[in-house]
């Protein structure tokens, strides 16, 4: 069984972002970049499946400019076998990403695609579901547990009301939630080894995908700042303020 994992280059999760002064976008100059945390969980899950004997090969794909090869190498160091870089400008819309991935899925004949549920930059939470739609695969989104049973996969999903387990016919698409696993750290020997693992490059045009613009970004602004309020000295004072000043209880 072949698994495809997608990885996205995003800002490092611990970085504080700034909005550009002309409000055109977020300023990413000199900002530390990293593997999107949800994608890291996806890579870890696929590698564990291979270690357990459920999967035979873990393929990793990233879409973006040259720099995203760094994230593909990171995934290879974590245990993925082979990389595909689809070269485009740094950021394209989820529907275009899904179209590109659908082509890769068709070419590689994978049984399972594991993606992060969202990237921590655009926070869209769309690509996995869109890929599932375009390939007519079932989807197990926001996964906190995955179990392979023959040609089916059971996915426990974190939903607003609690947990839900769905059984999907493979090939299937799964998107990861935070509690699916705790990703390992890549060891130095594995980082060295990853440099020699195969990584091929392609483009949307070569895959037969026409990149289309569906939305236009008009402006990006900083959110309204909340001002720090006052410190109260005691529980009694707190209750008094909530009752008579804020009038919320």
């Amino acid at each position: 069984m072949k698994i495809l994992v997608t990885v996205k280059r995003t800002i490092d999760a611990n970085t504080k972002i700034r909005v550009m002064s002309d409000n055109s976008n977020v300023d990413l100059n000199n900002v530390k970049m990293a593997l999107n945390p949800f994608c890291e969980i996806a890579v870890e899950e696929a590698v564990r499946m291979k270690e357990k004997g459920d999967a035979s090969e873990v393929l990793v794909v990233s879409i973006g400019d040259k720099a995203c090869q760094e994230q593909i190498r990171t995934a290879l160091a974590l245990g993925a076998d082979r990389g595909i870089h689809v070269e485009t400008e740094a950021s394209i819309e989820p529907l275009n990403v899904a179209k590109i991935l659908a082509k890769v899925v068709a070419e590689e004949q994978v049984s399972l695609v594991i993606l992060g549920k969202q990237s921590i930059d655009a926070d869209n939470n769309q690509t996995g579901q869109m890929l599932a739609a375009l390939t007519n695969m079932p989807q197990g989104t926001f996964a906190s547990e995955i179990q392979i049973h023959g040609d089916k996969v059971q996915v426990s999903r974190e939903v607003d009301s609690g947990l839900q387990t769905v059984e999907l016919a493979m090939p299937a698409v799964i998107t990861t939630d935070l509690r699916l696993n705790e990703p390992r750290y890549a060891s130095l020997p594995n980082i060295m080894k990853a440099k020699r693992k195969p990584l091929v490059m392609t483009t949307p045009a070569e895959l037969g995908v026409d990149i289309k613009q569906h939305t236009q970004l008009l402006k990006v602004e900083a959110p309204a700042e909340r001002q720090a309020g006052v410190k109260v000295a005691s529980v009694a004072e707190l209750i008094e303020k909530l009752k008579h000043e804020a009038k919320v209880i």
Binding site: I11, K16, I17, V19, V26, I120, D121, A122, D123, Q213, H214, T215, Q216, L217, L218, K219, V220, E221, A222, P223
Partner: peptide, 16 residues
């Protein structure tokens, strides 16, 4: 819509 965990607000026009 919020992006970057709500640290920026994007105004987006749909062309669809």
């Amino acid at each position: 819509r919020p992006i970057y965990a709500g640290n920026a607000i994007a105004t987006v026009k749909s062309l669809d």
